[in-house]
């Protein structure tokens, strides 16, 4: 096929190598700054099956770096929109778009259908979930992450090599590391880092010797300096997928998405909004106590239950959890993004 001629004429790839690429299955989590270049090059290279997981919609502020999208796709889901663009780039491969969040519930199932996982996410909860699910399903992860002008690339869990938790054992304090939407990022940086991730994916597929496993590659776009650090394997054992705890500076508040919250047995949903706030929440074991009345009504809650606290966007509920924790309610979760972020999921369920 002339489409892959420039690969095939390379001695180190040839017809046999291109066949390996065509039969490979790669799952890309996050179709953002990193995911876009990863997808673009893997689809162009002819990776036979590609999965794209992304729940977000295209926003104008994405277009500075997320090169698969354009003005005409503003407001559309990223996974679906990327699939449309990529199908034009290469209609001979299979592309599965998952317009969903990666959760404890779906991660293992999705991972088991692919050979290689690419981490192009923008938050620590997803990064630790990807790590843990990849360990449990025994899949290598091609990791990329960026901060302002700097990027990191690594391959984890490859042929029993070190994992993300061997490098960073647990999630950092919530406020200690801001993400791109808070501090900005040089648009071309995810292009460079994502392209390097695509390169590592192809090296794994082609069984090249020097995969970036057991190493952390760092690049600084301002100084053009690169450094590579060796990582050794730690004894950390992943036994099951659990909600990822992000440490807060003062107290620890565990956050959970609605999809996972609904899976918890023996739970109680505590809504701390005012009684007249909309949308109404239609949830099991639901109790409503406005935040300002919480301290007087705390006896209405059951300490033996897992309490999932919610409000409109997930801010007031954190204050409520701080109050509950002071009263020794030790099993509380904050509903991430509040009822606003959960609405779509709850509607789909109905």
């Amino acid at each position: 096929m002339s489409r892959y001629n420039r690969h095939i004429i390379l001695e180190d790839i040839g017809v046999a190598g291109q066949k390996k690429i065509t039969s490979a299955k790669v799952l890309v989590i996050g179709a953002g700054g990193l995911g876009c270049p990863v997808l673009q090059y893997l689809v162009a290279a002819g990776v036979g099956t590609i999965g794209i997981v992304d729940y977000d919609n295209v926003e104008e502020s994405n277009l500075q770096r997320q090169v698969l999208f354009g003005t005409s796709t503003l407001g559309k889901n990223k996974a679906l929109s990327a699939k449309e663009r990529l199908t034009d780039l290469n209609p001979t491969i299979k592309i599965n778009a998952y317009p969903e969040r990666l959760t404890i519930k779906n991660a293992k199932e999705y991972f088991s259908e692919y050979d290689i996982i690419v981490d192009g996410t923008d938050n620590f909860e997803s990064r630790y979930l990807i790590n843990d699910a990849s360990v449990l399903t025994n899949k290598p992860v091609v990791y990329g992450a960026i901060y302002k002008f700097e990027g990191q690339v690594a391959v984890f869990n490859y042929k029993e090599g070190p994992t993300y938790r061997c490098l960073f054992p647990s999630p950092p304090k919530e406020s200690s590391i801001p993400n791109c939407s808070e501090v900005g990022v040089l648009g071309v940086l995810p292009g460079i880092i994502g392209t390097m991730q695509a390169n590592e994916v192809l090296k794994i597929i082609l069984d090249f010797k020097d995969v970036l496993s057991g190493k952390l590659f760092c690049f600084n776009a301002k100084t053009s300096q690169t450094s590579t650090f060796s990582i050794s394997k730690s004894n950390y054992k992943v036994e099951e997928l659990k909600p990822i705890e992000s440490k807060n500076c003062n107290t620890e508040i565990k956050e959970i998405y609605i999809e996972d919250a609904l899976q918890i047995n023996n739970s109680q949903f505590l809504d701390v909004r005012e009684l007249n706030e909309i949308p109404k929440a239609d949830l099991p074991n639901y109790i409503q106590i406005p935040l300002r009345e919480l301290s007087q009504s705390i006896h209405k809650l059951d300490k033996s239950k897992t309490i999932i606290v919610l409000c409109q966007t997930g801010i007031r509920s954190k204050t409520a959890i701080e109050q509950l924790q002071k009263q020794n309610f030790n099993n509380c979760f904050n509903l991430k993004g509040g009822i606003i972020a959960s609405q779509n999921y709850l509607k789909e369920k109905i």
């Binding site: 700054g33 620590f124 990064r127 992450a145 490098l167 590391i177 993400n179 450094s227």
Partner: peptide, 9 residues
């Protein structure tokens, strides 16, 4: 070298 984790993507 002091290396922090990055979350951005």
């Amino acid at each position: 070298a002091l290396l922090p984790p990055f979350s951005g993507g």
